Simulated assay, not measured.
Amino acid sequence: MELFRFLAFLAAVLPVAYGAPTQASNSLHPKVLAAMKRDLGLDAEQATARVARDIQASEVIELLRASAGNSFAGAWIAEDVINVAVTDAALASEVTAAGANPVIVSSSLSKLEDAKLALDNIDIEQPKTLASSDSAATGIAAYYVDVAANKLVIEALADSTAHAESLAAQVGLAASEFEVKTVDAMPTTFATVIGGDAYIIDRAFRCSFGFSVTTGFVSAGHCGSSGSSATTSSGASLGTFSGSVFPGSADMSYVRTVSGTTLSGTIDGYGSGNQAVSGSTASATGSSICRSGSTSGVHCGTVRALGATVTYAEGRVTGLTQTNVCAEPGDSGGPFYTGAQAQGVTSGGSGDCTSGGTTYFQPVNEILSTYGLTLVRG
C-alpha cells in the first residue's frame, strides 16, 4: 500500500517535471545543446526538458521493476511516454498509477535475458578471416533484448540468418520470441585516436579519456591491457593500466594515474567549455544520449538496447548498450552521457558520422563497481 501511494505521488509530480525544464536551458553544455538540436531536432528548452525527463524516468522504471518482480518485461521511452511491459495484466493499474503506460506481453524480461545468457555461454563459430571473400557475408554480429518488441534480436550477416535461427532454437526460444535482423557489416572497435583529449598506450597508439575517478580514469578495455603504460600526447607519464577486460564480459579499463595528475570531473566540449559530470544514473531504453570523441566531436541520439552482446574480430563482448549515435575510429574510450549523468565509455560499432551508424558503449557503473572506483564530479 505504501508503494502504491508513493507511485500515485510520482504520477502527480513527474508529468510537471517532464513538461518543463527543472533548470534554465543553459544548464546543459552549449555543445550538447547544439548536438541535440542537430541530431534530435530539439531546441534548448526541449533538450533540457527531455534530459530531465529521461533521468527521472529511470527512477520510476526501477520502482516498477522491483514491485513487478518476475512479471517485469522491460521498459522504454517513446514519444514522451514511459512504457512498462509486464506479463501480468493485474499490474496494469500499478503501472498507470506511477505515470507510465502499461504494455501486456507474453515473455518476461528474465526469460529473454536468460536466453541471451545461454547464447553468451555457447561457443558461436565465426569466420576466421572476416575480410576474406568466402566469409564476408557470414557472422553473428550482435544480439540483445528488444524490450519494445518483447523479443531477443540476433543481428547476422546475410549468409548467417539460418545459423542465427538455429541458435535461437538452441536456447529454447519459440519463433515468436526472437527476430533475426540482417546487417551489412560486422562491428569493429574504434581503436585509433587523433586529436582532442587523447592518451597514448605503450607509446604506440592512442585512445580517448572516458571519465575521471579519484585515483585515475576509466576507458575502453580494448585500448590497453593490464600493465600497459599510459602517457600524454607530449610523452609525459600518466600511469599504468591497473585493470582491463576485453573481450569477454566487458570492454573496460582503469588507469591508475601518477601523483600530480589533475583529474577533472568534466567532459571535453570541443571549444565551448567543459560539461560537468554530476553522477551516473543509468538511462532507460529510448532515452536521449550524447557522446564526445576526439575524432568526431559531440554527437547525440537515443539508447536502443541494454545488455547487448557484440561480436568483434577479437571476440564477443557482453553487457554493452546499443545506441544510434554515430562514432568513428579514434572515438574509443570517450564518454557517453545524458545531461550531466555519466553513462559509459565508447566501445565500437559500425557506420560513421557522415552516413550514420550504430555505436555500443560499456556502462560506466559496471566499471566503477568492478574496480571499486568513485567518479570525480565537476
Rank of each mutant, 00 (worst) to 15 (best):
M1V: 13
L3V: 15
F6N: 14
A12I: 07
L14M: 14
P15I: 07
R53F: 01
I61A: 15
I61L: 04
R65H: 12
A68K: 02
G69K: 04
N70Q: 14
A73V: 08
V86A: 13
A90L: 10
S106Q: 15
L109Y: 13
L109H: 09
L119Q: 11
A131H: 07
A131Y: 12
A136T: 11
Y143N: 06
Y144M: 07
N150I: 05
A156W: 04
Q170R: 13
V171D: 10
G172A: 09
F178K: 05
E179V: 08
V180I: 14
M186V: 00
F190A: 06
G195Y: 09
I201Y: 02
I201K: 07
S208E: 08
S208L: 01
G216H: 08
A220R: 00
T232P: 02
G235W: 01
S242A: 15
S244P: 05
G248K: 05
D251R: 00
G260D: 08
L263T: 10
T266L: 11
R291D: 01
H299W: 06
H299L: 03
G301W: 00
G307W: 05
G319T: 03
G319N: 07
T321K: 03
T321E: 03
G333M: 04
C353F: 04
G356Y: 01
T358E: 01
E366Q: 15
S369M: 02
G372A: 07
G378I: 12
